[in-house]
Measured scan of single mutants.
Amino acid sequence: NLYFQGLKYMVPGARVTRGLDWKWRDQDGSPQGEGTVTGELHNGWIDVTWDAGGSNSYRMGAEGKFDLKLAP
Rank of each mutant, 00 (worst) to 15 (best):
E34W: 14
W50S: 00
I46L: 12
G35Y: 04
Q5F: 12
W24P: 06
G53T: 02
N56E: 07
P12A: 11
R15K: 08
S55I: 10
V37W: 00
F66Q: 04
D67V: 03
E63Y: 12
G13T: 03
W22N: 03
L41G: 03
M10A: 05
L2G: 15
D47Y: 12
Y9E: 12
A71W: 07
A71T: 09
S57F: 10
W45S: 00
E40Q: 13
L20D: 14
G29C: 07
V48E: 00
A14S: 09
G29P: 05
R25C: 15
D51V: 03
L70M: 10
D51Q: 05
M10E: 03
K23G: 07
A62N: 06
A52G: 09
F4S: 11
R25E: 15
N43P: 02
Y9A: 10
G39R: 10
G64C: 14
E34I: 14
K8H: 12
Q5W: 13
V11L: 09
V37M: 04
F66S: 03
G33Q: 08
P12I: 14
V16W: 02
V48L: 00
W22A: 04
Q27W: 06
I46C: 04
R18H: 05
Q5H: 14
G64Q: 07
P72F: 13
W22C: 06
H42V: 13
L70P: 09
Y58V: 04
D21E: 03
R15S: 02
D47L: 14
E40G: 12
V48N: 00
L70C: 11
M10H: 04
Q5G: 11
F4V: 11
L7M: 14
G64M: 09
L2P: 15
V11A: 09
N43R: 10
L2M: 13
R59D: 00
D21Y: 06
T49V: 12
G19M: 05
L68R: 01
K65S: 09
L41S: 07
N56M: 06
Q27C: 07
M60N: 03
Q32S: 14
G53S: 04
D51W: 02
V11F: 09
Q5N: 11
D21M: 03
Q27A: 07
P31T: 09
T36F: 06
L41P: 08
F66E: 02
P12L: 13
R25Q: 15
P12N: 09
R18S: 03
G33A: 08
E63M: 12
I46T: 02
G29D: 06
N43H: 12
L70G: 04
F66T: 04
A52E: 08
K23H: 07
G53P: 00
R25N: 15
L68S: 01
G54A: 08
G39L: 03
A52Y: 13
M60P: 01
N56C: 13
L70R: 07
Y9R: 09
W45F: 05
G29H: 05
D28C: 06
D26R: 06
E34L: 15
L68K: 01
G35T: 01
L7Q: 10
P12S: 09
Y58M: 03
R18A: 07
N43K: 10
D26G: 06
Y3H: 14
A62S: 08
V37T: 04
G61F: 04
Y3G: 15
W24L: 05
D21I: 04
R25H: 15
R59Q: 02
H42Y: 12
L41W: 11
K23P: 08
